[in-house]
């Protein structure tokens, strides 16, 4: 065990004032515009990531949230070394990612839900073997890791089928396996559950949590599915228009933008309509400020003594909708 890490825990990921600016040609409308574009191109700058700073400690699981085009994927690509930052500094495990040193690449992995590394026409097992050769893994270690992963993801029946014959979910499980055979210390996951059905999403989520527990891997995850983030991460980074606008725990975020609770009565009780409840799929639902909840519950129990009552936090995706709406209003006061 490296003593330096044990004595003085450095941040695994340290990002300072990271920016990425793309120069994109301005497409002019119409045929004549396109023709002109062939000869004279005008460019404009797109600030995909602007002045982003954060630190992530060993073993943390962090969720990266933001609307499409906010800069999440660009940031992950810079962290893994695929893209060069326009300015700012990144340190991951003490390395500068853009140098793509082999010792760095051996310790990280990037999974992109929309791309695949599995070879299409042959069984996934062969891609795994190829990765073993590329990472120069010891055969015994490799066997042990693969057995463990096969058990965690229940892969034994699909390892030897050509990848093109696998379902999307099965393929994603194999993609994840290929990505972690070398037991990376840092996992960058970009939309790892995209397009999967609910059951498969659950399985992938469980697997990522498991990896984090067993291998102590640090996880930075983006996802469209708020349930992924809610289930997997306790810390959230929110990025919008390339800027980091929130970095903290989910609870804090809830207090800031949704400091109320949702009260649900799991049966239809018309008498509750007077208390501000609305009907929703045969249930009665309302929201109340935290300090009003107890009073409300007493009132509900008086009117519907036998009803089953639940109190919940506002779901994360609704929080996000509100969060971005409020930001949008602030930016654009019209």
């Amino acid at each position: 065990m490296p003593s330096r890490v044990a004595l003085w825990p450095l941040a695994v990921i340290d990002v300072r004032q990271l920016s990425k600016t793309y120069r994109v040609p301005i497409k002019e409308p119409g045929l004549s515009g396109s023709l002109r574009g062939l000869f004279v191109r005008r460019y404009r700058d797109v600030h995909a990531v602007a002045d982003v700073s954060f630190k992530i400690e060993q073993g943390e699981r962090v969720g990266f949230l933001g609307p499409n085009g906010a800069g999440k994927t660009t940031t992950l690509k810079m962290l893994s070394g695929l893209l060069h930052p326009t300015s700012g500094d990144i340190s991951v495990l003490g390395f500068t990612p853009k140098e793509r040193k082999n010792d760095f690449l051996r310790q990280i992995t990037l999974v992109m839900g929309q791309k695949q590394q599995l070879l299409w026409d042959i069984p996934a097992r062969e891609t795994f073997e190829l990765n073993r050769a590329m990472y120069d893994l010891d055969r015994a270690d490799y066997r042990r890791t693969l057995d463990e992963l096969v058990e965690m993801l229940r892969l034994s029946d699909i390892l030897d089928k050509p990848v093109r014959n696998l379902s999307l979910g099965e393929r994603m499980k194999c993609e994840l396996t290929a990505a972690v055979l070398h037991r990376p210390r840092v996992l960058f996951l970009d939309e790892p559950t995209i397009g999967l059905d609910v059951e498969m999403q659950l399985e992938v989520r469980r697997f990522i949590a498991d990896l984090n527990n067993r291998f102590g891997a640090t996880v930075l995850l983006t996802s469209h599915y708020m349930q992924d983030i809610a289930a997997l991460t306790s810390r959230i980074l929110i990025i919008d228009h390339g800027r980091l606008c929130y970095d903290g725990s989910r609870e804090e975020l809830a207090q800031r933008i949704a400091p109320e609770r949702r009260v649900i009565v799991r049966q239809h009780v018309p008498a509750l309509l007077a208390l501000g409840f609305v009907e929703d799929h045969g249930r009665m639902v309302t929201t109340a400020a935290v300090d009003q909840v107890n009073m409300l519950l007493e009132e509900v129990m008086r009117r519907a003594p036998s009803a089953e009552i639940g109190v919940e936090e506002v779901p994360l995706d609704e929080m996000m909708t509100r969060y971005f709406r409020s930001r949008g209003e602030r930016r654009d006061p019209s």
Binding site: G81, L110, K115, Q116
Partner: peptide, 13 residues
């Protein structure tokens, strides 16, 4: 074009 080269670039080879 497809970006599939990403995975190759990130291998220690």
């Amino acid at each position: 074009r497809s970006g599939a080269l990403d995975y190759l670039v990130l291998k220690p080879v």
